[in-house]
Simulated assay, not measured.
Amino acid sequence: MDVLSDAIAAMRTGRPHSSRTVKHAPWGVRFPTSDGAGFHVVLQGSAWLLPPEDADPVRLGPGDVVFLAHGYGHGLADRPETPLVEAQLEPDGSWPTLRHRGPVNGDDTLILCGAYQLNRSRAHPLLTDLPPFIHLPARVGAHDRLRSAVDLLGAELADPQPGSDAIVPALLDTLLLYLLRTWWLTDRPEGPTGWAAALSDPAVTAALHAIHGEPARPWTVEELGAQAALSRAAFARQFTALVGQPPLTYLTWWRMTTAGRLLRGSDAPLRTVAEQAGYTSEFAFAKAFKREYGVAPGRYRKQGAASPA
Rank of each mutant, 00 (worst) to 15 (best):
H40I: 09
D129E: 09
L50C: 09
A155G: 08
R261L: 03
P269A: 02
T280C: 12
H124T: 06
R20P: 09
H143I: 05
Q44A: 14
E292W: 14
K287R: 15
P96F: 04
T205A: 01
L146W: 01
G106K: 04
A277Q: 04
R20S: 14
I111K: 07
D108K: 04
T186F: 15
Q117M: 14
T82Q: 05
D54I: 00
F289R: 00
D129G: 06
I111D: 14
R301M: 05
A203V: 01
P247L: 01
A259M: 11
A69T: 05
M1L: 13
R122E: 11
V41L: 04
V29Q: 10
A10P: 05
T33I: 07
L179V: 04
P96N: 07
T82K: 03
Q44E: 14
A115S: 15
N119V: 06
V204D: 03
K23S: 06
L177F: 03
G102A: 06
P269M: 01
R12E: 11
P103T: 00
T97H: 14
S46Y: 02
S266G: 10
A234G: 07
H24Y: 10
I111L: 15
G36V: 04
V168G: 12
Q227W: 01
G75F: 03
S164P: 04
Y116N: 13
A228L: 05
S307D: 12
E275V: 09
F133S: 08
D159E: 05
R99F: 05
R79G: 07
E190S: 08
D144G: 11
I167A: 13
A228D: 08
G102R: 07
R261C: 05
D159S: 06
L118R: 09
A123P: 11
W254F: 13
L146P: 09
R271E: 15
N105V: 12
